[in-house]
Design a protein around this nucleic acid. Sequence first.
DNA 1: ACGTTTATTTTGACTAATCAAAATAACTAA
DNA 2: TTAGTTATTTTGATTAGTCAAAATAAACGT
Lengths: 220, 220
Amino acid sequence: MATSTVENYLKHMLLLSEGGEELVSMGALAEALAVVPGTVTTMVKALADSGHVEHRPRQGVRLTAEGRRVALNVLRKHRLVECFLVNVLKMDWAAVDTEAEQLEHAISDEVLDRLDALLGHPETDPHGDPIPSRQGKLDSQVYATLATCVVEKPLRIVRITDQSAEFLQFVEHNGLLPGESVRVTERNLASGLVTAKKTAGRPLVLSLAAAGKILVQPAR
Amino acid sequence: MATSTVENYLKHMLLLSEGGEELVSMGALAEALAVVPGTVTTMVKALADSGHVEHRPRQGVRLTAEGRRVALNVLRKHRLVECFLVNVLKMDWAAVDTEAEQLEHAISDEVLDRLDALLGHPETDPHGDPIPSRQGKLDSQVYATLATCVVEKPLRIVRITDQSAEFLQFVEHNGLLPGESVRVTERNLASGLVTAKKTAGRPLVLSLAAAGKILVQPAR
DNA sequence: ACGTTTATTTTGACTAATCAAAATAACTAA
DNA sequence: TTAGTTATTTTGATTAGTCAAAATAAACGT
């Protein structure tokens, strides 16, 4: 069995490679895992020996089919656990990522399946992140963001790509939850500011950086 | 934070001391934790340094108030998780101990509280084992067993004290679940056999060892 | 093309948890 | 007592995962 450390390495590789094809740098992985780069190099070599990744020295690392399989299973556990914590235990939207971080390594595939059934086989977690299927299919659709979308076009929020509690609290406080309708009324590259409006509500100003973490699709 | 290894050491000390006062031997602990005795000695000294236990060299070990607090919290998590797995996820009675072994170290106190509420604050887990209260109270009532009870007296099964899947499957298969009514019709010390009868059913023969793991109280 | 910055890898050391096997202490039976 | 059994402790090694800091390689700018 993969240790939870191994599972974390693989999961973050999957998240950082946006689908699994590109090489992930040691630096990015070190950052994501909150360890020093040397540790990642060492670990990645071990993961290459165990067949979970392919390591190109000085270039980066990529998941093998087997590594991807493991990573998708962990991600599925993480996101289904988040659904459970929010939908069943009514926990705070912004706090569940931390909880799921622990639980994703502790639940068995058996529990996973039953949780999935209990929740009605959801397709996304409470933040809008797609849940990998049992068979390892992950919706990798590319969405526009409030930083890149067409101005004045009616939109629907589909996903928030920053799981930090602070950001999620901000999002919730301003009613920018997945499913909500909005449109961007103004975008100023120079100042780095985006103005958005909900159908009913006062205009809301946010930075380009923040706007880029809110994924949208055309309304309806 | 206590690592899950530490939590396991403390939990097993609590279980082996039947309430917390007697000294637990290194050998018993090694057996329960499936490690060699030398490992336990080393670990127990570390736990003494961190204030979780009091170590009497060559005699045994005992939980301190703090160690007991931690152990009770872990046990509470274990047993509430078992309730959840059986009552909500409808998992197999005999399989949940293994699952809970992992989950008890991964769920936060916050999740614990919500799980407790969701389940309606149960007092025992599916095997009849008492769940420590939030405040750390643990029902330590001493029950008779099918090996020690009065013959022919009507009884109610309250608890099964062997969590191995094999034994639990045997118990389930013979309808000796907690809550069921039985009486012992015959007990033969020489042959080591006990004969029990459910209100409606054929007589059931089991060994004294097995009978001793089934706790009962007077019916009604 | 040359020196500088930046990313990566290597090296040596550390911690937590473990085992195997030797040493020690305690108990037990003649 | 004294030898023998049994439980415990000690010692030395091992594995997984980590860090700090030095060494190396690649990329970048002029």
